[in-house]
Simulated assay, not measured.
Amino acid sequence: MKVSDILRVKGNTLFTVMPDEPLGTAMSFMAEKDIGSLVVMAKGELAGMLTFREVIQRIVKNGGQVGNTTVNDAMDSTPMTCSSETDLDEVRRMMLDRHARYMPVMDGRMLMGVISFYDVAKAVVDGQNFENKMLKAYIRDWPDEANAEPAVKI
């Protein structure tokens, strides 16, 4: 399974923010939309990722206050990315290695979407459920050896 399979099911809604936006505004938007990440775009290109992890780290660093912090101050400016052709097993390994919950999907310099660890886990479980159904159907249709016709000898 490829990342493109997840994006096809998930749809193409993207939530982005500019680096100079106040962090408080970005936090409010994330809460309003019930999302855990925003893609940070500058001049039409990926500039970083803002997730609740970065938000919390920045608030702690600021002594519990958001203050005048901008998205640029809090964002991960070097997010791990993948392409729509990346295999799902590779994405899962990458996300586990870096403890990443969100990953921008890039085709060249074009942002195609964002996948979450939830999206990856759901795709794996759905794939396993489908495989289980197919195996059960195969076993159910297995010929009964007692009633099987004898092999014809030539």
Rank of each mutant, 00 (worst) to 15 (best):
M1P: 00
M1D: 04
V3T: 09
V3Q: 03
L7R: 08
V9D: 03
K10G: 03
T13K: 15
L14F: 13
F15D: 03
T16Q: 15
V17I: 13
M18T: 14
P19K: 05
E21C: 05
E21K: 11
P22N: 08
G24Y: 02
G24V: 02
G24S: 04
G24P: 01
T25C: 03
T25K: 14
T25I: 08
F29H: 07
E32N: 06
K33P: 00
D34E: 14
I35P: 05
I35W: 07
S37H: 03
S37R: 02
L38P: 06
M41F: 10
M41V: 15
G44E: 04
G44P: 05
G44L: 07
G44T: 06
E45D: 09
E45Y: 09
A47R: 12
A47H: 07
G48V: 04
G48Y: 05
M49G: 01
T51F: 02
R53V: 07
R53T: 09
E54D: 08
V55C: 07
I56D: 03
I56L: 12
I56W: 11
R58E: 08
I59T: 10
N62M: 07
N62G: 00
N62R: 10
G64M: 03
G64S: 06
G67E: 00
N68D: 15
V71S: 00
V71D: 01
N72E: 15
D73Q: 11
A74E: 04
A74S: 04
S77E: 09
S77K: 12
T78V: 12
P79A: 09
M80V: 11
T81E: 02
S84R: 11
E85W: 06
T86V: 02
L88M: 06
D89P: 02
E90L: 11
V91R: 06
R92V: 05
M94T: 11
M94F: 13
M95D: 01
M95N: 06
L96K: 14
L96H: 11
D97C: 09
D97S: 15
R98D: 12
H99K: 15
H99E: 14
H99P: 00
A100T: 04
A100S: 15
A100Q: 06
R101K: 12
Y102S: 04
P104N: 02
V105W: 05
M106A: 06
D107R: 10
D107H: 11
R109V: 10
M110I: 12
M110L: 14
M110Q: 11
M112H: 06
I115M: 10
S116C: 09
Y118M: 10
Y118S: 13
D119L: 07
D119N: 09
V120I: 09
V120D: 02
K122F: 02
K122W: 00
D126H: 10
D126N: 13
Q128M: 15
N129Y: 05
E131F: 13
E131C: 02
N132A: 02
K133E: 13
K133T: 11
K136W: 04
A137D: 13
D144G: 05
D144L: 05
D144C: 10
D144W: 07
E145S: 15
N147I: 10
A148D: 15
E149C: 08
P150G: 14
K153Y: 11
K153D: 03
K153R: 12
